[in-house]
Amino acid sequence: MKNLLAAKNITLAIADKILCRDLNLEIRAGDVWGILGPNGCGKTTLLHALARLHSVKQGDIFLHDKKISAFSGKELSRRLGILFQDTQESFSQTVQEYCLTGRHPHLSHFAWENTDDKKIAAQALKQMELENKLTQQIHTLSGGERRRLSLATVLTQTPSVYLLDEPTNHLDIYHQIKVLNYFKTLAETQAIGVMMSLHDVNMAQRYCNKVLMLFDNGETLQGTPLDVFTTENFSRLYQHSFRKGIVENISCWLP
């Protein structure tokens, strides 16, 4: 299947610290990638680099087989959406207004959101169970609701590649499963690609078909969860011993 997003031999660094060296990565349609690694190993930086928000020290990134540097800002964000780890707001907005900003890359300069755009936003808000809060100001939302609003906004952007930085932050178990399940189904049915950083290895095993481990020393390991999920790898990744259990024929990992 065709590559949606590909990284070729990229090296990422912050100041002098090398985060990953000569990384090759391919996100294909239907893929749900999980990035695992300890704090500060470069999960966020990698996602930002893939979204052209952080420069790579070496190597190239291709979106639909075209260098990402060749896209204009709006062209890029029509195809690639990123969810940030957290958000900052100096001023309030209503839930609907906030979500509709996801349509920005699809609108020409002076155009206003039309009924189709509003339908897309309403659909995304419904998926995230926020349809009853359209006119509420965002600063009155709870942490989990804010997170779901950010997710609805990136869904409203309708890209073909989703880069999600800890999408389950602030979410309760019900919503974590709902959100991860939704993106998995989306990837499988709509031929899109998802890459997300996660801290819960059991969730990663359940919802990702590919996994990238970023080690503290800049080394990387990738493969299917079945291949790379071992107690040795986890212990090395998190500097903490792991045990494996089997529940109803599914392996689970206990730190």
């Binding site: 928000l53 800002g73 964000s77 029509r78 900052q88 920005h104 890359p105």
Partner: peptide, 9 residues
């Protein structure tokens, strides 16, 4: 960053 991610220069 948020503005850039939605295509704003």
């Amino acid at each position: 960053k948020a503005a850039k991610a939605l295509g704003v220069n």
